[in-house]
Design a binder for these strands. Structure first.
Lengths: 186, 186, 186, 186
DNA sequence: TATGAATGAGAATTCATTCAT
DNA sequence: TATGAATGAATTCTCATTCAT
């Protein structure tokens, strides 16, 4: 099962989503096409499982990065952890974002995604009192910025070494500007 | 020809890239499958033409938004113009980003993309003296932030009315933080 | 009309039967696809007309080659005339043989073919008294030998300059051997 | 796999090359269209495999026909064996000659073709000393005569019973005439 | 449970032919 | 009469999925 998922990951990395056929997955995983369907109901669920795996892996890293920090500092910690984590397999990250930008393909990854979302909402609420909707949009934007910048970098691979810092700056920049904007409204 | 491109756009909006078949495009365009190939050599070139159309439309808006401004002000003008433009057809924007994040699918859209890129590099160079590489990464990041936030919003459609402002804040935040970071390095 | 036929010929020569489309014929002939159908009921009738044209051209040469000769000498004269004639456009000959080995695609070329056939039967009958069936097979074989050797040579283009002599030898060889064989039977 | 090849053969025999579609092959073979592509990469490779099959079958017969003979006698033995072999499925032979007159469609049949070619060159060299080029043309001509006469007969089916003898006479006739012609040149 | 050959619906594309202008 | 855009049936080939072994 893990082999099948990893096979899908490797195919995405080496030749992209168009070549991701179930027969190819089976071949790379070293099993028969029929066996793949013993564990996965269909092709989409393999992709979903891969996304869930990646989300899971990240969750482990995520908590450590935030603890003992709060507010913007915690958010920056989070963004750097996410970026460093995804830098390990940039091509894969790129392909997964294109396949499922929201990470909600499976209920499992959707759940993990929500956990992360709640984590970030908590961080935001520690330092400012925003109504639910505003906090939600705030967090979504920050995730979108991170996702967008990773996607951009992984497409160009121009200056991958300082990507974590650049993303941190983008997040911090958004945070400080936006907190002001949101406060003004009240 | 325009009908075929618009048909592709509508299919992307209503049911996404998987249902974008050449037969479906022909049907929605109200022509026969054969007719599609009178104007387009293959399926990809329809998509490329659609992307080129969108890029073209945006270019018209783009110049107006920037003129008489400079520096950050110009960049914010640009980001708002882009966002407002893409807000007209958010679902389509989303699908096109997923199909071709770099806008380089066709030589024509690649050219327009480069024009926009040069426009932004000029804006950056007006206010700060950065070496070529740094300016390039700077501009790429800003485009990535915009792309990421649009993609995020169009997936959720939570608070679309203040998206231009939020993107402008993100761009401004990145700009001010990053100019400092880059200056420190010198 | 002649332009259309010649266009078909040229396409056969340059790129073979697979690329012989009606649209291509029209383009090479410098007319519109619709115009082609003013003169020809369908694609096959263009090919038939081309075959008829070639048969016709050859008939002109044919009579001259035979007159004042008789028997084997006349037959050799005929074979050399045919070979020299077809050597002018070997590629075309090759393609036409493959398209219609019997030259009976159209009633017109079938008629010319029969004329030639009768000519050769007369030649045979001048020197030997064979029953109709035997004479018929005799002539058919000679035509088949010529066709086969031309086809072979035009595929390889090895030694095209002495092809007429080689074919003449083959014809003469068949003639002399076969006359004996046929006589024995009686 | 053999079923698919035989299906192609039968279609060629009954209705010719225009009706030889991959769907029809699958239907006649009693399998699904997809199954055809399990064994053959594309349509052409089915045809090539059929040609290779025929060439292979003939090779088995070929050696026996020649052994213990030499010179013209061996060549006549060969020509009779070939003719008798192809007489088993004349319609198929006809269609295959039109599809691939040189038998070089596949590397496998090309190889077999070369084997046969070498066999015949050896036969020629046993009785006469010809330079390479002359021997090559000599053998090619003999093969062309056989091919041409089979093609002619299979089109008309006039007197199929004495075809082997007629072809043998044609070959013998060419041989004796041509050996003289070639010797004169020296 | 694992296999992998077989499936067959469906995709992209072609091209002989038509017909409104 | 000439045009050439439009047609649409037919073709090759793919691939997610199944099921007998």
């Amino acid at each position: 099962m893990a082999d099948v998922i990893e096979a899908a990951a490797r195919i995405l990395e080496t030749s992209g989503a168009e070549t991701l056929t179930t027969n190819m997955i089976a071949e790379v995983a070293g099993v028969s096409p029929g066996s793949v369907y013993q564990y996965f109901s269909d092709k989409q669920s393999i992709i979903s499982a891969l996304i869930a795996r990646e989300a899971h892996e990240f969750m482990k890293v995520s908590h450590d990065a935030i603890e003992e920090c709060s507010g913007l500092e915690a958010m920056i910690g989070f963004s750097k952890a996410l970026t460093l984590h995804r830098l390990q397999r940039p091509k894969l990250t790129l392909q997964l974002i294109l396949l499922d930008p929201t990470l909600t393909a499976s209920s499992e990854s959707a759940k993990i995604n929500e956990e992360i979302y709640n984590l970030l909402v908590d961080i935001v609420n520690e330092s400012s009192v925003l109504d639910d909707k505003t906090a939600s949009v705030f967090v979504m934007d920050i995730m979108a910025i991170m996702r967008g910048m990773m996607l951009g970098e992984f497409l160009n691979q121009d200056r991958i070494d300082d990507l974590p810092d650049r993303i941190a700056d983008a997040v911090a920049g958004y945070w400080s500007r936006r907190i002001q904007a949101v406060s003004k409204c009240d």
